[in-house]
Design a protein around this nucleic acid. Structure first.
Length: 430
RNA sequence: GUGGCCGUAGCUCAACUGGUUAGAGCAUCGGGUUGUGAUCCCGAAGGCUGGGGGUUCGAGUCCCCUCGGUCACCCCA
């Protein structure tokens, strides 16, 4: 498509990005507001961090994670800095912690877009939104429990039912090598039963082989050794504590001893929320866990962290599957019908808005009939009408609008114009 | 990134095996006399059939390229 052609180029949103228009955008905002409310009720404060960081902040996330090795949006800025758009929030939160050194335990929540260069499909966008919460500076496993409980409360408040919590632990850094050895031994002993993909993965990160959904691998994975047999006393006790806590709080969970997560930084508790009403490809609606070494990897102190992130779009998809958390339909309280050719519509609308009433109206000098239609369609419960008669008498007509089921409201009345605001407010209060 | 499927008015879809001015519903706009919505009636507008090229007397229908979407793999939120 040449820019010199006579027809102007028609642009569209890039693959994996989209526009969210009114009811959908408000639905998303409502979801974020709900999350913010739950998080702040639990003592979390919001962090707003940059959408791009030094590339190094993200490459610390792991050499065998696709998120950093092939999906990062990275570029060089004018000063030659290597920059990347955030593919997730945890690394930025840790970097911020190392930089700002807030009091511990530091509890932060966030909401916003993240970026990943993948081939897009439904529930999988290049720019996608997450909400999440992190706690840095404490080893207490009760924080793991609290975090999971926060997500659980959030889901409940949305009305979501078809989400299951999968729980696992990845042990401590010291436990990992022994488990990895056992995994390697197990898979290497049955190498020809593995798919080629998995053999490659095995070289890079044996843990990740557990993630394979390829049918031929299933049998071998099911027979693979389990991390819980390799836990240190401390890690084992912590995991035990988390399970007891969740049970006490009546947060249902399913132990998933072969659950591994996409990022390499996880230690100890890891969990994932699976939307049972969703296609397998996008059923991971959220996940998180401990990352006790990440802050130090980013040049900070040896402080531990826990957190989770939830995919906003996938959560909404799960809501749809449950027929829950509908999009709000925002309406205005008053619709102004002005058929004078003057500025009454403009002025009345402003007067009401300054008085705190939500108002809209028609433009382009449309007929009264057309304006009444628009008023009706808007869903506004009240129409303020001004025509030649009202104008001459310095008055306005107030017409209660009724929905489909007939006239159940009061009659239309004519009132002095200077009483409009008070009378409108009275009518709306009923 | 690899592969399969799909792409017709704003939206949801039609158009027999390629054949005359590509249709409908909903939505939009106007009208049904003199200033009043929802129902009803009438009418209008709206598409170079995603874009480009090719085959053919003739293409929305076939072929190629391209751009989107979608599904699977991969991966993940």
């Amino acid at each position: 498509m040449s820019s010199t052609s006579s027809a102007r180029q028609k642009f569209q949103a890039l693959p994996g990005t989209r526009d969210l228009l009114s009811p959908t955008s408000e639905r998303m905002r409502a979801l974020v507001n709900t999350f913010a409310d739950e998080a702040e009720r639990a003592g979390f404060g919001q962090i707003v961090s940059p959408m791009f960081e030094d590339l190094g902040v993200f490459t610390r996330l792991g050499e065998s994670t696709d998120v950093v090795t092939k999906e990062l949006y990275d570029f060089e800025d004018n000063g030659g800095r290597r920059i990347a758009l955030r593919p997730e929030f945890t690394a930025s939160v840790c970097r911020a912690y190392a930089q700002e050194r807030p009091l511990t335990p530091w509890k932060a929540w966030y909401a916003g877009p993240a970026f990943r260069q993948e081939k897009a499909q439904k529930g999988r966008y290049r720019q996608f939104d997450q909400v999440g919460a992190e706690v840095i500076g404490s080893h207490d496993p009760d924080l793991d429990t609290e975090l999971v409980a926060l997500a659980d409360r959030f889901y409940r408040r949305l009305g979501l039912r078809s989400v299951t919590l999968l729980l696992n632990t990845l042990g401590d850094a010291a436990d990992r090598p022994r488990y990895l050895d056992a995994l390697r031994a197990h898979f290497n002993a049955n190498l020809d039963a593995l798919t080629e993909q998995s053999r490659i993965t095995l070289e890079k990160n044996p843990l990740r082989v557990l993630d394979s959904k390829r049918p031929p691998d299933a049998e071998l994975i099911a027979a693979a050794p389990v991390i819980t047999d390799f836990l240190s006393v401390e890690a084992g006790a912590a995991f035990e504590r988390v399970q007891q806590g969740l049970t006490a709080l009546e947060v249902p969970f399913t132990l998933a001893p072969r659950l591994v997560r996409g990022l390499d930084y996880y230690t100890r508790t890891t969990f994932e929320f699976a939307g049972t009403g969703l296609e397998a490809a996008q059923n991971a609606v959220g996940g998180g866990g401990r990352y006790d070494g990440l802050v130090a990897d980013l040049g900070g102190p040896e402080d531990p962290g826990v957190g989770f992130a939830l995919g906003v779009d996938r959560t909404l998809m799960a809501c749809d599957a449950d027929g829950v958390f509908d999009a709000p339909n925002p309406t205005v309280d008053v619709w102004i019908v002005a058929v004078t050719d003057g500025t009454e519509g403009l002025e009345l609308a402003e007067e009401l808005r300054r008085a705190g009433v939500s108002v809209d109206r028609a433009f382009d000098g449309r007929s009264m009939k057309a304006q009444m239609k628009a008023a009706n369609r808007s869903g506004a419960p009240l129409a303020v009408i001004v025509g030649e008669d009202e104008l001459a008498a310095d008055s306005v007509s107030l017409r209660p609008m009724r929905r489909a089921d007939g006239h159940s409201g009061s009659e239309q009345t004519v009132i002095p114009r200077d009483q409009m605001v008070t009378r409108v407010k009275e009518l709306l209060a009923r």
